[in-house]
Design a protein around this nucleic acid. Structure first.
Lengths: 143, 143
DNA sequence: CGCTTTATCTTGACCGATTCAAAATAAATA
DNA sequence: TATTTATTTTGAATCGGTCAAGATAAAGCG
């Protein structure tokens, strides 16, 4: 299986063990884009009821570090994860209900990647979050 | 005093009372850009030792809502505040130590404000966070 | 200016996402 | 299959931040 082979290779190259929790967490996030940690824990336990929440937290952190997952955490909301990585896309977040959707940046492949004055920082990523109201909350307000 | 008059006017226009905690919090954030809540509490208490942490939390939230303050909260870091608002600037955050600096966007006044596909959201703000390493952490790594 | 109303503050308990730590388990290697 | 040690399990702890009830003080009025 592609997903399987992918994670195995990445883990081994990083000298990390290929464990059930790690594989299950990657699968769960792939199946549930933008899910929060609790949702992922539940999804993982559908298949493997004995996996602890701690193992899920650890796996999420490791997979994020290795670049297999990406963490999204808008102000005032808990962490969410997605398996769509490396394509430089961004997110719209609803101020009212926290709904989240993917957006490709209007500018192109590397939007805003260069700051006008980087203060000596070596920048490797530009993260963009668009804030607004989702369609549901808009109509709820006018109603 | 400009700051004073400014906050009074904004609060009254919003039908909010002008209270000591609110004025003190705005002054503290102005004096300590990018400070976290605890730092602001300490600063406020230098002048007004009896102000509670709750009042500071409430004031920060209110002033942020009214647009007098802006909250910055990069992943894995606690909330910080700044009084520089309305000029559409962004931030660089150090992945290693959490250091934070202001950046004006390279693109111009309204960087990336228009998403390619907004999924029906009405977008009012595009927030950009540049991730990287600050000068200190860069030299620490090579050393 | 003192009185009334009620928004705001103080106090102190509480919450929930995440982390820590120690003992138990299982992946990798020989 | 046995050994090593990275990972996981378990369960407590941490810590920003929030909630709630009673006390206080801004704002408006006589």
């Amino acid at each position: 299986m592609t997903t399987f082979g992918g994670i195995e290779k990445v883990l081994r190259e990083a000298s990390m063990r290929v464990t059930r929790p790690r594989v299950a967490v990657l699968a769960a996030v792939t199946a549930h884009p933008h899910a929060d940690t609790e949702t992922i824990i539940d999804a993982v336990r559908q298949e493997h009821p004995t996996i602890s929440h701690q193992a899920v937290y650890d796996s999420l952190k490791l997979l994020t570090t290795l670049g297999l997952l990406r963490q999204i955490q808008p102000h005032g909301h808990i962490a969410r994860y997605e398996a769509r990585v490396g394509d430089n896309h961004h997110h719209v977040v609803c101020r009212s209900c926290g709904a989240l959707a993917d957006v490709d940046c209007a500018i192109g492949a590397s939007p805003c990647l260069h700051a006008s004055d980087d203060h000596g920082f070596s920048i490797d990523e530009a993260e963009v979050i668009y804030w607004g109201l989702c369609p549901e909350c808009q109509s709820a307000k006018t109603a």
